[in-house]
Design a protein around this nucleic acid. Sequence first.
DNA 1: CTAATCCCTATAAAACAGATAGAGATAATG
DNA 2: CATTATCTCTATCTGTTTTATAGGGATTAG
Lengths: 151, 151
Amino acid sequence: MISNKAKYALRALLAVAAQPGGEALTSTEIARRHKIPHKFLEQILLDLKKSGILESRRGKSGGYVMLRPADTISFGEVLRIFDGPLAPLPCLSRNAYRRCEDCESEARCEIRREFARSYEASRQVLDSRTIADALRESQNPPIAAPERRAG
Amino acid sequence: MISNKAKYALRALLAVAAQPGGEALTSTEIARRHKIPHKFLEQILLDLKKSGILESRRGKSGGYVMLRPADTISFGEVLRIFDGPLAPLPCLSRNAYRRCEDCESEARCEIRREFARSYEASRQVLDSRTIADALRESQNPPIAAPERRAG
DNA sequence: CTAATCCCTATAAAACAGATAGAGATAATG
DNA sequence: CATTATCTCTATCTGTTTTATAGGGATTAG
């Protein structure tokens, strides 16, 4: 399960990116719309700013706008910021690689091998789909998509 | 990241399933071989027993054996026992479905839609690959497999 | 009877999740 | 210049989860 923090961050990003004419959106407004605790959201927006994804303007009529275009921000990138590595095992992470202390041989580890497959599959999706993709499909819902309710 | 508990459980299962002639394997031996804290492992093996995956014999020369055949036990099943639902969002889980309290419409939720894709991809792997698959490949490593070190 | 094993429950330290709080910095507006 | 709305920063708090550790009880082989 992803954390609330990551979910809130994605909600906020979708809201800011959907803002017509690139107008600024305030934390108060985002919190109200999406029922996110305001002070908690502020921390999250700050993190998004520190990560170079959002830009902010202070003072009256301030708010947040996208710093990078929405089609360069993948779901995977946001998840990594808030929930850490996507990899199911430390020894499978590129960015945050750590050896399993008790592992004899990574090449021969059955667990590593199996999780590598599953990881590759989900990573491929998360790192390719962007905030812009999500918004586009939202406005233009795919017709008769075979909605497969996954378990 | 998966929990240590789940990782230990998978290690233990692979060890018991690999036991020649279906001989019993003791918790002490598994703990020694894989450097797992013994008392912690005992709890895990007990959970595996309660889940109907392992069988145990008590007393001297006791130990654990498979109750169900290794080719019926998927990685996904084991993960669910120890780490809970595989789904990245409660509203995507079949077994442990929960509505997101603040969600207006699941059908129109962009976040749900995107995570459904990623989830489907990884679930497909985790629920299809079994303990037996992992052991088989381990003994018979695929020749010149394009080892793609995922990040 | 003894020793080795599994079985069960309680406890605890550390990390993490999910906030809450309050004060400071900045900018627009009148 | 005072006011007000905003972002910024840091500290704190509470409950849950993780990762064990501990101690004994039950069972069985020999």
